[in-house]
Design a protein around this nucleic acid. Structure first.
Lengths: 125, 125
DNA sequence: GCATCTGTTCTATGAGTTGTAGAACAGACC
DNA sequence: GGTCTGTTCTACAACTCATAGAACAGATGC
């Protein structure tokens, strides 16, 4: 699993780790039961502190995407989470509004959504 | 113009103000040339400090959505901004991946995008 | 048993962000 | 002249971010 983070980005490192894992799950590169590297190992690989990796993993666990045990480490396991849909739709509205406000056409924006979703499908197929 | 912010939210107040203005522009409730309330006035209306409003307005100005002068105050005026598209598409990918990772179907996600975009169109019409 | 790796938890520190606050200046308006 | 405006400056408490060190306990392999 390739997981590249930009240490110079304004986006927090733990957030980048979180986002890359989510994208890998969406693309099917990570499926239920797949193991992630240990917090200490990934921290060494990325050249960061293991507490930072721990924070990203913990966030994924709270979101119901990761199961973490002392025995098996971090394993992808998706469980239903309440209240996700409403929060997600609110963020979608804000993001799409940003594109429209900046002058993009509705059809153009929908095309970007379609292309992005198709990319996930294709990697999975 | 109604602008409601949640002071108890974990989302920063200035970010909420920014997002609501962007959504209003996308929905056509705010068009080019429309004036926003002064920083001090909006701060009083929302019961917050005017520096916080100033931060939100300044962010909108840097994004090319607002023109701020001592004379006319804050006025909606959209100008082209470089580098917006790439950043936006990266954020779109992350947001859509989150939905797919949580088990939503691709068609379902695209449907949400379509519905949200249509809502903007309808308010504008 | 022993060493090692793992997740977990605690404290701590420095840098940066967030929101509030007060003050001051200058242009615009009546 | 008085008032409203945006702008800029400093300042503060609270919080976040990332790093750091230490310690504990379960699991694994020899």
């Amino acid at each position: 699993m390739i997981l590249d983070v930009d240490l110079t980005s304004e986006v927090p490192i733990y957030q980048q780790i979180h986002d890359r894992v989510v994208e890998a799950i969406a693309a099917g590169e990570l499926a239920d039961g797949d193991a992630l590297p240990s917090t200490r190992q990934l921290a060494v690989d990325l050249g960061i502190n293991f507490h930072t990796v721990n924070k990203a993993y913990d966030q994924l666990r709270r979101e119901g995407l990761l199961l973490i045990t002392r025995k098996s480490g971090a394993v992808v396991q998706r469980v239903s989470t309440a209240g996700f849909a409403a929060d997600w739709q609110a963020r979608l509205k804000t993001l799409l509004a940003e594109a429209i406000a900046h002058g993009l056409d509705e059809r153009e924006v929908l095309g970007h959504c379609e292309t992005t979703l198709r990319a996930f499908e294709e990697v999975r197929a």
